[in-house]
């Protein structure tokens, strides 16, 4: 490994005393910590833009199909139970709060609260997925409310209901994948926080993952009314 490769690797701790976060160095090609922090944040905002555009494709497909087959979509939203969707909305909003709070904890050097809030956020994500899969996907799939050619629900009122289920499973499935990725990232933060990596001078990772987690939440905030509430 040449010199530049070792310098380009992630911020590493310098020797010396003090908590780990106070010894973290910025990558060699940045002039200082602040420049690195700003760059990482800008990078994450750009990435979030791509995420919004990714989901915008699904939203456009939703709008066009809804315009073509309003009855199938009205029926579709009646098949969904808004209470489970509402509970999941609360779960995600709560997790967004604890995520934001963990950034504050890192800035204030409250290590115990930081670990607690990160762990709590991961658990909220898990709860969201459990509700989604066991209480929503599984019974519907068993009833034959499936996407496309797999559709076999006998009491369908409209011939285009399979399209509704295609949109429903694609949109919520891709969103659930994002929740899963977010949980992985926050678990990584949690493991690093056990070593005291994050603190007032070094919390870039918590900040950018937090941005990502809020976006995942925000996408759900749009999906929930579109799928569950509009009749």
């Amino acid at each position: 490994m040449s010199a530049i490769d070792s310098h380009g690797s992630p911020p590493t701790a310098a020797g010396g005393k003090g908590p780990l976060w106070s010894r973290m160095k910025h990558a060699h090609h940045f002039r200082n910590h602040d420049e690195e922090f700003d760059a990482c944040k800008l990078g994450m905002w750009l990435f979030l833009t791509t995420e919004v555009l990714l989901f915008s494709g699904l939203f456009v497909a939703y709008a066009i199909m809804r315009m073509k087959y309003p009855q199938a979509f009205t029926n579709g939203s009646h098949y969904l139970d808004w209470r489970w969707g509402g509970l999941n909305t609360i779960v995600l909003l709560l997790s967004s709060f604890t995520m934001a709070y963990s950034i504050r904890n890192a800035q204030m050097n409250k290590q115990g609260w930081l670990k607690f809030n990160l762990a709590f956020t991961v658990l909220c994500g898990a709860l969201f997925l459990v509700i989604k899969f066991t209480l929503e996907y599984a019974p519907k799939w068993a009833q034959g409310k499936r996407p496309g050619f797999l559709f076999s629900y006998p009491n369908a009122q409209d011939p285009y209901e399979p399209i509704w289920w295609s949109i429903y499973y694609s949109a919520t499935g891709i969103h659930a994948t994002h929740v899963l990725i977010g949980m992985g990232l926050i678990t990584y933060l949690f493991l690093r926080s056990l070593k005291g990596t994050y603190g007032p001078k070094h919390y870039t990772g918590v900040e950018v993952v937090g941005l990502y987690w809020h976006l995942v939440d925000l996408i759900w905030i749009f999906l929930f009314p579109l799928l569950y509430l509009i009749h």
Partner: peptide, 27 residues
């Protein structure tokens, strides 16, 4: 990202026949 979601839906279309682009299903 827009081609990303498009190609993803095309893959869904081939694997699960979701029908969003398929005129037989109303797509």
């Amino acid at each position: 990202p827009v081609i990303g979601i498009t190609l993803l839906m095309l893959i869904f279309e081939r694997l699960f026949h979701v029908g969003i682009f398929d005129p037989r299903m109303g797509g």
